[in-house]
Design a protein around this nucleic acid. Sequence first.
DNA 1: TAAAACATGTAAGTAGTTACATGATTCC
DNA 2: GGAATCATGTAACTACTTACATGTTTTA
Lengths: 169, 169
Amino acid sequence: MNIQDVILGLLCEKPQSGYEIKRHFEEYFSFFFDASYGTIYPTLSKMEKLELITKESVRQEGKPDKNIFTITPAGLNQFHAYLQRPAEKEVLRSDFFMHLYFGDKTDKENIDNLLRQALIEKQAMYDDLDQKLKQLDCKLSPYEKLCMELGLVQYEAFIKKVQSVLEPE
Amino acid sequence: MNIQDVILGLLCEKPQSGYEIKRHFEEYFSFFFDASYGTIYPTLSKMEKLELITKESVRQEGKPDKNIFTITPAGLNQFHAYLQRPAEKEVLRSDFFMHLYFGDKTDKENIDNLLRQALIEKQAMYDDLDQKLKQLDCKLSPYEKLCMELGLVQYEAFIKKVQSVLEPE
DNA sequence: TAAAACATGTAAGTAGTTACATGATTCC
DNA sequence: GGAATCATGTAACTACTTACATGTTTTA
């Protein structure tokens, strides 16, 4: 998976700008993928040169011009090839786990803070995802829904386990 | 978190070589962190220059020389500063989720394969982690144990959810 | 009146991977 | 006899982030 494949996927839905693409990343899959403008804009230029997408500039009142990108048949082709490929190995990079792993090299209070903070953050992510799922429910494809539900069950498992450690009966 | 902090953490336990460090990555925390030799060896050289670690070459019969690295007081200092810092945001990059998210742009068979494959891989990771936990149980610090248990509960939640989708009653 | 949202883009730098290069020993 | 393990290291490359640069409109 590279960012090109992801952009092509979004442009399948509808033509849109780099800004809108970034917003979509943040709103719908920040929990398993993200990219900055510093990657998105140069990638869009590159994809235009490769003729995977076409650009149309739209003038707007009171706002900068908007560059709307549309997927080409070649782009659609490349995206379908991506979908056929088996999924690459998932990569997690977790500083929380690293801190926890070395827990016996610091004091208990420090680790308790770590766990409490992780709990707060995961709970916030859970709530955010849960709310989105409820709000968008009817607008989502069954697969988009499953993505979110899989996120939720994993967050839930994490939260329960950490709670059981922090608040033993 | 950068790779320096991780290496310092491992060298707290005992002096060891780049090769042994890499083995440790693979065996104990491949599920939340990994790095290649192409990062490890240059980083060790850099850390030696920074006087965070010292190198000792050990001649071995029938094997190449081994460079054993030992943490210095300055290194220990830097590591403790790392432990005090709050944990950075966790980053997941999942091609599985991306494929699933765009599921309605391909056929059902393709997605069923994706789910089945993910199930096989997660189950293998679960089994591997579970076995390690059982084998090493008494040798692990409570924190190392908690790391593994947190991995397990999250894998379990994922597996159950995917099973429920693939095999509805 | 300040911050957030809208909108695009570049330059410099960081961090990392993959492939190459070498070579003995041990296990199957 | 071939694969895996032990062991180190570099060069070329890829991918990505952060900070900078610019400027309007809407919202709190």
